[in-house]
């Protein structure tokens, strides 16, 4: 059983930082797509993709939001690539306490890229006429046990909530919510 392989689709955005022209169309359309109702407003500060840019250092890096992390990294490294010095955070996708990126401006809640669920490809990719963002799907074979079932997924989510708020509070909340229903 355990050595049986399953196929899994990995969605990725291939980012070519040399092609980025710094226009931030990706931020515009991302925030518009995720507005409620769709496209009813836009606000780059809500975008799940950000162009980390420092024109005078020729640094243009589109980064899309990954996981929320409760704590910032212990060390901050610098990378020198082709003579340009990059802060490690420039490549990091986390919504993290050390920076303003990937948080709702009003509530501070973390933002995460969902690859524009329901669209053929993420809209940031479609709107990037500079081709700095290219959408790719690749199939990867993974051992079946690596594929999370829905149940496992749910448990994982609850575990992290429990870690943050304490199991007791989660149970209380679930109880209260089910009463409201």
């Amino acid at each position: 059983m355990t050595d049986e392989k399953k196929k899994k689709i990995i969605k990725t955005i291939r980012i070519d930082v040399d092609k980025c022209n710094g226009c931030r169309a990706c931020e515009v359309i991302c925030s518009a797509f995720h507005a409620e109702p769709k496209y009813s407003s836009n606000n780059p500060a809500r975008s799940r993709i950000r162009v980390i840019h420092e024109p005078l250092r020729d640094i243009y890096i589109p980064v899309y939001a990954g996981e929320y992390t409760v704590a910032e990294c212990a060390g901050r490294d610098k990378y020198t690539i082709d003579g340009k010095e990059y802060d490690e955070c420039a490549f990091c996708r986390a919504s993290c306490p050390s920076r303003v990126e990937f948080k709702e401006p009003d509530s501070g809640l973390p933002l995460k890229c969902d690859m524009c669920e329901g669209e053929e490809e993420p809209l940031c990719v479609r709107w990037c006429l500079a081709d700095a963002l290219i959408y790719e799907e690749r199939e990867e074979e993974v051992a079946e046990e690596d594929v999370l079932t829905e149940q496992e997924d749910l448990e994982l989510g609850l575990e992290s909530l429990a870690k943050k708020y304490g199991l007791k509070q989660i149970i209380d909340t679930v109880a209260r919510m089910s009463k409201e229903d």
């Binding site: 518009a32 507005a35 109702p37 769709k38 496209y39 009813s40 407003s41 836009n42 606000n43 500060a45 809500r46 401006p105 709107w127 006429l129």
Partner: peptide
């Protein structure tokens, strides 16, 4: 600035924007 700019007819506006991108 970190506030929203609102659009009156969202779907229609998005469609128009896409047409312009296509023409570019």
């Amino acid at each position: 600035g970190t506030k929203d700019v609102n659009i009156a007819s969202p779907e229609r506006y998005f469609e128009l924007c896409n047409e312009v991108l296509k023409y570019i």
